[in-house]
Write a protein that binds this DNA or RNA. Structure first.
Lengths: 325, 325
DNA sequence: TTGAAAGCGCTAACAT
DNA sequence: ATGTTAGCGCTTTCAA
């Protein structure tokens, strides 16, 4: 393997000059830099990051804790992050955690040997112990997605409450009489529901907590359950578009007209939501933009160009379509 | 920061014994190991991977080249890989490439300073130059997803041709008379179409190449175009489920009965394919299983436990649903 | 603007 | 089974 020493000999300078020409080009005379570049090209030199990080004490690794890669929302968020980091010297190390606190803790231990320059969490940090540990580590920590009141360090997230509020207000404008809410409890459910209550100006007539896997079938089942528990129901707000679409499909199977007899709304604006018939009214969140914002903010912090601002709320939009009339 | 030396002092042994107790526990007496473990726990020691990799010359980083994280198929494949690698000392470094050869090449340069122990590509390796470069590097390279005839090194992929063949045979069994095929050309289109031709026993009456973004609208547009170009058409095989669903939605808008007047089939078995009405006949591929198989195979290779087998074909299944009658 | 010397923290190679 | 010595390749610190 080619080493700095080899490049230095080729360029007729000392090793440290090669190092400077590559990582602090402005500290080296133009002419010298050119010589070094030529020598690098000729020898095919590639820096050894283990050696450079060991000596300098600066890691260029950012560890990315992801709960669920099969969720394209998160995938887009990671894409946004990666794009924001492109051209910088930082790289993302994957740490897959699922949604469990235990996995997060074991992944943290796995990742520590790399002395990450920062940590990004897609989804929330579950346990208080983990939060304390991270806070004590003096490493920038970025939380993404959920809008927590008390972030560990930095945060870019949507306000689920704001989304719920927008939908509540929409339900009021549509004058729905008997309203149900259904969502996963492992979700940002509490805030979303709180916002919904605020926008609606009252508690929904029925709140149905949902457990189990995220798929259409859960929505189909939820729809049946809601009809049984609240026969007068004329509008449902679901905590996810997949639930809403499932409910809509179930309504069609049961011959119940949407939105004539029953209005249905979702959350998340998945791609198919605008293409099913009727198209689903929902709240739109942009994972890519959020990830990008998080990456840019973190990068500024790492380059000490940050303004001290550490919390950003990503915008959320109500998208009114056919399913609410 | 705590160093091996500190742990060694605490445990009353030499630094190298600490190192061995942690990375080759079987080379150390049980009693000594216990002392070291206690000292590690007491001091909070975490190995410095930069130092260990530099000294040993062994990187524990595997770089993962991903073309598109927003695609949940790929997301699941990465999940499978990550799961296979869990508990090993290897970690995934993300390299986002898009579908371009240029991005792949620049990401390769980005990643080389980490001296990756292996490289995984989700999707194909585009340029011949890149293939040569990788081959000359003496690093295990895993290609995933597509089944190429001439892999750089290792491969776990679906046979798109096999999938096309299954669908062709299905179309024959259904006795469709006037058949169209539509797919993205940046896809595994050639092989899929070749297999389809083989299964069908003839060339389809129309082949429509599709460009642009992957979404329902492309399918809607494709459906209209096919009807115009081949008015007698009674069955279409799409190179992706999103196209098929789009086409189906367009058919409904135009009042064309599926499958009565027109049969529609897709490829990939996305979640919504089984939930739309009519449910879409398609080819099922399991990204997670594939990723897992790739990760396991690579791990065996890295641990020198491989059997020399370097190419695996993941199974692909025809799922017959309502959309083909 | 460039260079010389030193050492980051660990483990391979060689002893014992 | 354990210890001693040395050095992986780079960049910091200090000097010129």
């Amino acid at each position: 393997m080619v080493r700095v020493e080899d490049v230095a000999r080729e360029a007729g300078v000392s090793p440290i000059t090669v190092s400077r020409a590559l990582s602090n080009p402005e500290k080296v005379k133009e002419e010298t830099r050119k010589k070094v570049e030529a020598a690098v090209a000729k020898t095919g030199y590639v820096v050894n990051r283990f050696a450079s990080s060991l000596r300098s004490g600066h890691s260029t690794i950012i560890s990315m804790f992801v709960s669920n890669l099969a969720n394209p929302h998160y995938g887009r968020a990671i894409q946004g992050c990666a794009d924001a980091l492109e051209g910088s010297r930082y790289h993302l190390l994957m740490a897959q955690t699922g949604y469990s606190a235990k996995m997060q803790e074991s992944m943290l231990a796995e990742v520590m040997p790399f002395r990450p320059a920062a940590m990004i969490f897609t989804g929330r940090i579950n346990s208080p112990g983990m939060r304390d540990q991270l806070r004590s580590m003096d490493v920038p920590v970025m939380e993404m997605w959920d809008h927590t009141p008390d972030p560990v360090d930095m945060l870019v997230g949507f306000s689920a409450a704001e989304g719920g509020k927008l939908m509540g207000a929409h339900f009021v404008a549509r004058k729905f009489k008997s309203v149900a809410y259904a969502g996963w409890s492992d979700d940002d459910d509490g805030q979303r529901l709180a916002g919904f209550v605020e926008g609606l100006g009252r508690k929904p007539e029925l709140v149905l907590p949902i457990a189990g896997p995220r798929n259409f079938e859960a929505g189909m089942l939820a729809f049946t359950t809601i009809l049984k528990k609240l026969p007068t129901c004329d509008a449902i707000f679901f905590g996810g578009d997949d639930l809403a679409v499932g409910a809509m499909l179930q309504a069609r199977k049961m011959g119940i007209d949407v939105p004539g007899k029953m209005a249905i709304a979702g959350y998340g604006d998945l791609e198919f939501s605008q293409h099913v018939t009727p198209a689903i009214t929902t709240l739109h969140v942009s994972g890519y933009e959020m990830g990008r914002a998080a990456g840019e903010m973190l990068l500024k912090r790492l380059l000490k160009q940050d303004s001290g601002n550490r919390v950003v709320t990503s915008p959320i939009h109500l998208v009114v379509r056919e399913s609410t009339g």
